[in-house]
Design a protein around this nucleic acid. Structure first.
Length: 117
DNA sequence: GATGTGACTTTGT
DNA sequence: CACAAAGCCACAT
């Protein structure tokens, strides 16, 4: 039962997301890049939609490139994400976060850590 | 297997 | 700010 080969990439994405510290956020593209999968922002989104199997994946810290929550404003998911973000002290204005202030900037050690594997 | 969709991004109108 | 186009690719029809 050889795996599809894609499963590894998904795990890679999730592992990278788990490296995002509380109080910070990242974009789908940023996660994909750090995971060694440039141009795969969509895969990042799909990976987060999947089942985490109990892993503590902070999916709520992942936003679109413009800082907006990737769910329709007013939707339950959007509300949930906003609550989780605010619970970490992140300001959310109209379904949007100020990346300039909250975007995660991984240190070299973390970059090497996530990029490897 | 072609087509459409989507938790995306970037560049250009 | 909104929209279009192109790039990306897994998945559903």
């Amino acid at each position: 039962m050889a795996d599809t080969g894609n499963n590894d990439k998904v795990k890679q994405i999730l592992q990278t997301v788990m490296a995002v510290p509380e109080g910070s956020v990242a974009t789908y593209g940023q996660i994909a890049d750090l995971a060694g999968l440039p141009g795969r922002a969509r895969l990042a989104g799909r990976s987060l939609r999947a089942d985490f199997n109990g892993e503590p994946v902070p999916w709520h810290r992942i936003l679109r490139a413009d800082g907006k929550i990737a769910f329709p404003p007013g939707s339950e998911k959007a509300k949930e994400q906003r609550e989780l973000l605010m619970a970490e002290g992140i300001m959310v204005k109209d379904n949007r976060v100020k990346l300039r202030n909250c975007q995660w900037q991984p240190d070299m050690a973390t970059i090497l850590f996530t990029l490897k594997y």
